[in-house]
Simulated scan of single mutants.
Amino acid sequence: MLVFGLLFGGYAKHKQSTEYTAKREITIYHNYTDKKALENTDNGSTSLASDMQMMETYAKVSDDTSIAKQAKKIIKKNYGYKMSASDIKSMLDITSDPQTVVLNVSAKSGSSDKAVAVANSTAIAIKDRLPKMLNDVGTINVMSAANKDTTHSTTGPSAKKYGLLGIAIGFLAAFIWIFWRETIKLDNDNEKEK
């Protein structure tokens, strides 16, 4: 059990890596007065509801390569990193919060600095490019910038979990071995008695 636990735990420790996630939020809406935002439009929905329904479209359009290319330029200029548009796209996850006008830009990387650079630069690129890609987008506000203090990190695989798994496998292997040994010993004793 101890050997399996140490082997599995050591393997997990050797393979461990930390991934950092940086997030930046964007709001996209039309600047109506409160009363007008709640009035029905021609299709029967309110202006605010129409803005909320468009968020998923904005998220999909924001995943376009042209935005990643714009982000690439911003990253190089502001952060000094040389990255390809495909690398940037592979790091990104752009989603919308249901029933809100909030777009979430998340970037994952093995470096907290790169995750922050990609999240911030992509949010700025979305603000710049989205109105050129879609008509009547509305007001785009980029919220507080991501920074190292606001990144979230996850480390895996877990050495403790792998260690416990190794101990469990070791226990099972020991149980099977002891059962097998005792069964053979019992069979041998029976043979001797005959």
Rank of each mutant, 00 (worst) to 15 (best):
G80K: 05
Y20W: 09
G166K: 12
S96D: 13
D113A: 09
V137F: 05
G5E: 03
G80R: 08
K69Y: 04
T150M: 04
M55V: 11
K35P: 00
S47Q: 10
A159S: 10
S86F: 02
S84M: 07
E39S: 15
S47G: 12
A125L: 00
A59H: 11
S158I: 14
K148V: 14
S111A: 06
K161G: 14
L7N: 05
S47A: 14
F8K: 07
S111W: 04
K160C: 01
W177G: 03
Y29S: 15
S90Y: 01
I124M: 01
G44P: 06
K194W: 04
V118I: 14
K127D: 00
A159I: 10
D42S: 15
V116A: 10
R181G: 12
D187F: 11
I26N: 02
N78D: 14
D63S: 15
A119F: 09
M54H: 03
Q70L: 12
M91P: 02
S158Y: 08
T154Y: 08
N78I: 02
H30C: 03
T46K: 11
E39W: 06
N147A: 13
N78C: 03
F175M: 04
T150I: 13
N31R: 13
K77I: 12
H152W: 02
A146Q: 10
T65V: 13
T151W: 05
Q53T: 00
P131G: 10
T183L: 11
D136M: 06
P131A: 13
M91K: 07
T150L: 05
Q70R: 14
G110S: 04
A117S: 10
V142A: 01
G166P: 05
K82L: 05
N190P: 07
M52I: 12
R24M: 04
I88S: 01
K72G: 02
F171W: 00
K23E: 09
L172E: 03
S90H: 07
N104E: 07
A168H: 00
A12W: 10
L7A: 15
I124T: 06
Y162M: 15
S66Q: 09
A71R: 00
A168Y: 02
A159G: 08
M55S: 09
T155I: 08
A59Q: 06
A168W: 00
W180H: 11
V102G: 05
N31T: 09
N190K: 09
N120A: 02
V116H: 09
I178Y: 03
V102F: 07
N188S: 06
N147F: 15
G80L: 07
T100S: 15
S86K: 10
E39H: 11
L172S: 11
T154K: 11
I167S: 00
N190W: 03
E19M: 04
D113Q: 11
S84I: 05
I28W: 04
A119Q: 05
V116E: 07
M54N: 11
G170T: 06
S90V: 03
A107S: 14
M91F: 02
K161Q: 12
N147H: 12
K13S: 13
G166D: 01
Y20D: 05
T95M: 11
H14F: 15
